[in-house]
Design a binder for these strands. Structure first.
Lengths: 101, 101
DNA sequence: TCGATAGTTCGATATTTTTCGAACTTTGGC
DNA sequence: GCCAAAGTTCGAAAAATATCGAACTATCGA
């Protein structure tokens, strides 16, 4: 499987982050990753077809907001909390509550 | 002149703010309003036609990011710094340097 | 090796945004 | 009242995004 482009922390662009978060579904995904931690795609799909869900996860990935790893047959998505915080301190706090962990 | 819709502080929606800031021209406008204070539209237009500039200012206004007042024949645009800070603390700090004033 | 599961990719269509000229509005000055 | 300056609005065309089915890929288990 070809791997999606994942920008390094210092390559994350504010415009891209804002664009990614301007969609209600994607904003909700980020919030849930923030509160609930790593999730599979289907755990967060809200009865959308998978191609649509996959598209939104890709936008989040390419903007630098999430990282995806394989775990068996599923793909687990995690918020790149530290990378985002380092690049744009305070941004995540505006968006998503801190996870209690 | 009919006045554009200006959301109250508590009506400002994060999605709208993110959408407004996802355009490079609008992000730059917000940064300049933040550093240089109130500006006319034409002071910030970068050789774009005025209808295009006007469109972008409208998006910023409707998202709740700026406020516009008449001053003679020009319209002065100001960042709604306090309203945004109250609604989404820390957001502006990610975007725009604080104005020294 | 054969299914089944979880996503991804492709392609086509629909929706949303952006762009820009032309006409219009408002205000100030002569 | 008339003109100029600064924006706004309208409408149409171009560009970017979103949506969704169908075909494809990768991994696990039997």
């Amino acid at each position: 499987m070809r791997h999606a482009r994942l920008p390094a922390s210092e390559e994350i662009a504010l415009e891209d982050v804002f664009h990614a978060l301007s969609d209600p579904f994607r904003l909700e995904v980020v919030r849930r990753l923030a509160t609930e931690g790593e999730q599979s795609c289907q755990a967060l799909e809200g009865d959308r077809p998978k191609s649509s869900v996959s598209h939104h996860f890709r936008v989040l990935r390419e903007a630098g907001l999430i990282r995806t790893r394989n775990e068996g047959v599923t793909r687990m998505n995690a918020l790149r909390r530290d990378d985002i915080e380092q690049r744009f301190p305070g941004l995540l706090a505006c968006v998503a509550p801190r996870r209690d962990d």
